[in-house]
Amino acid sequence: MSLLIAETEDLDTCLELRFEVFVREQGVPPEEERDTLDDSATHLLATQDGTPVGTARIVFQGDIAKIGRVCVVKSARGTGLGARLIEACVDVARERQGITRAKLGAQIHAIGFYEKLGFEAFGPVYLDAGIDHRDMVKPL
């Protein structure tokens, strides 16, 4: 079994994975899932034996790497892939000149997951696509 996580230009595959997880599973409206940031973001794609199983994107804003749209298909959950995706995003951010922090909006149920990866929650709970979130940050 071969897992590969790498930057990709294959936005269509990333969008298909996100549609499956966010729209079909979580009920996020399709018009809220896709936005204009996708065109300028750095996208990562995880493949298991050549099959797409997860994705994430990074939007660089000033000294911040905003990690978002992180998803793993149902069949690959519980394997550590989500953590590896986040670690890969952090590695990409560290390589970028001038980036000092990684930031993300975590669904409330996932805060503990991100804390284990070195992120710290801050600020109030807010709704994003009808789901409670809280911002989290990690110094790089």
Rank of each mutant, 00 (worst) to 15 (best):
I58Q: 04
I58S: 05
V59I: 13
V59C: 14
V59W: 06
F60Y: 15
F60D: 03
F60S: 08
Q61N: 06
Q61L: 11
G62E: 12
D63E: 15
D63T: 15
D63R: 15
I64H: 15
I64E: 15
K66A: 08
K66D: 03
C71Y: 06
C71H: 04
V73C: 04
V73M: 04
K74C: 10
S75E: 15
A76N: 10
A76I: 03
A76Y: 02
R77F: 03
R77P: 05
G78V: 14
G78F: 10
G78T: 14
T79W: 04
T79E: 09
G80E: 05
L81I: 12
L81V: 12
L81E: 00
G82A: 06
A83K: 05
A83F: 05
A83W: 02
R84Y: 03
L85G: 09
E87S: 12
E87L: 08
A88P: 00
C89R: 07
C89N: 03
C89S: 14
V90T: 02
V90N: 00
V90C: 06
D91V: 07
D91T: 09
D91F: 00
D91R: 10
D91H: 07
A93R: 07
A93M: 05
A93V: 04
A93G: 06
A93P: 03
R94C: 09
E95A: 13
E95R: 14
R96D: 02
R96I: 07
Q97T: 12
Q97A: 13
Q97H: 11
G98E: 12
I99H: 07
I99C: 07
I99Y: 10
I99R: 10
T100D: 05
T100C: 12
T100Y: 09
R101S: 13
R101E: 11
A102W: 04
K103R: 15
K103T: 13
K103Q: 15
K103L: 15
L104Y: 03
L104W: 06
L104P: 01
L104M: 09
G105A: 09
G105P: 04
A106M: 07
Q107L: 05
Q107K: 10
Q107V: 05
I108P: 01
I108A: 11
H109E: 12
H109M: 11
H109W: 08
A110W: 02
A110L: 09
A110E: 03
I111T: 09
I111S: 06
I111N: 08
I111E: 10
G112R: 09
G112T: 00
F113D: 06
F113M: 03
Y114I: 13
E115T: 10
K116Y: 03
K116Q: 11
K116H: 13
L117K: 01
L117P: 06
